[in-house]
Design a protein around this nucleic acid. Structure first.
Length: 269
DNA sequence: ATGGCGCATCCAATGCGA
């Protein structure tokens, strides 16, 4: 199975690039974040022509997540039990079972600044997500994919000194990720296609991408049984190039079938 | 080459992103 995740920063604005990418990369399952459209406005027919069915969760202007699959899409859930809101729950999580794998697409709240109420919302949301995942993990192989808005380590930001006092790098945020890993989830770290750091996000401004000043904030957390099947994973930074990209690049994870360990790990397209 | 914010919205000034 080829599993991927991508914060597209508006699925409508990104539709031509999304369709090209789907046709080229052919993931079996794709998690999307920041679709920025209502579920009813999702371009279901367009991706359907490429063989994908859609589970979309959207509330309009902001947020919005989806799971696209061409290997089945069962038991779709939007949001989760006791999901916090700001103040009302937002469209930040959708899950579906695809070919026996429980797949979550999540868009973790940004947090804005550490002294903002939105920061507490972020931590509360992550804690509630952990509880919801604990229930799902008992049922079989699971992958949580998405924009976590947390850089797990200092190596995951281009200049740690500049991030002191900012969100995405604070101990409480990193502890919230550690709590997810303590459930038995493994951080599937992708191979960068260039440079030593598997960054997944580069700000649009000031030439950050071409200077490779990025952050690794999009993550794939896989249950142990699933993580053992990972044959390769990479950041598709090609998708960040050119005219009209998202500010995030997709992560692509290849899983071997049938429970046999990978023999020749390979990264890249 | 990888190129210097972009997206959505009561349409234009603002909220949001990290």
């Amino acid at each position: 199975m080829r599993l991927a995740t991508w914060n597209v920063n508006s699925v409508k604005a990104r539709l031509p690039r999304l369709l090209d990418w789907l046709a080229t990369t052919r993931p079996d399952v794709l998690c999307l974040q920041e679709t920025k459209c209502a579920a009813t406005a999702f371009p279901t027919a367009e991706v359907g022509e490429l063989g994908y069915t859609v589970a979309a969760h959207g509330d309009g202007r902001w947020n919005g997540v989806a799971v696209l699959s061409r290997v089945g899409l069962d038991d779709v859930t939007r949001g989760f039990r006791d999901e916090p809101g700001f103040p009302d729950p937002e469209a930040r999580a959708v899950a579906a079972t695809c070919a026996g794998v429980r797949v979550w697409s999540v868009y973790v709240p940004n947090g804005r600044t550490p002294d903002s109420p939105h920061f507490l919302y972020k931590l509360t949301w992550l804690a509630a997500l952990r509880d919801a995942l604990a229930d799902d993990l008992a049922r079989g192989p699971l992958a949580v994919c998405g924009d976590f808005n947390v850089a797990p380590t200092d190596a995951d930001v281009w200049d740690p000194a500049l991030f002191v006092g900012s969100t995405h790098v604070t101990p409480p945020e990193r502890e919230a990720l550690a709590e997810l890993r303590r459930l038995g989830l493994t951080d599937v770290v992708p191979t960068p296609m260039k440079g030593p750091h598997p960054y997944t996000y580069w700000d649009y401004r000031a030439g950050m991408f071409h200077q490779n000043k990025g952050m690794r904030i999009d993550l794939v957390y896989a249950s142990g049984d699933l993580a053992a099947l990972v044959g390769g994973a990479y950041v598709d930074r090609e998708a960040r190039k050119g005219k009209g990209p998202s500010d995030h690049a997709p992560i692509v994870v290849d899983l071997t079938e049938g429970g046999t360990p990978p023999t020749a790990p390979a990264a890249g397209p």
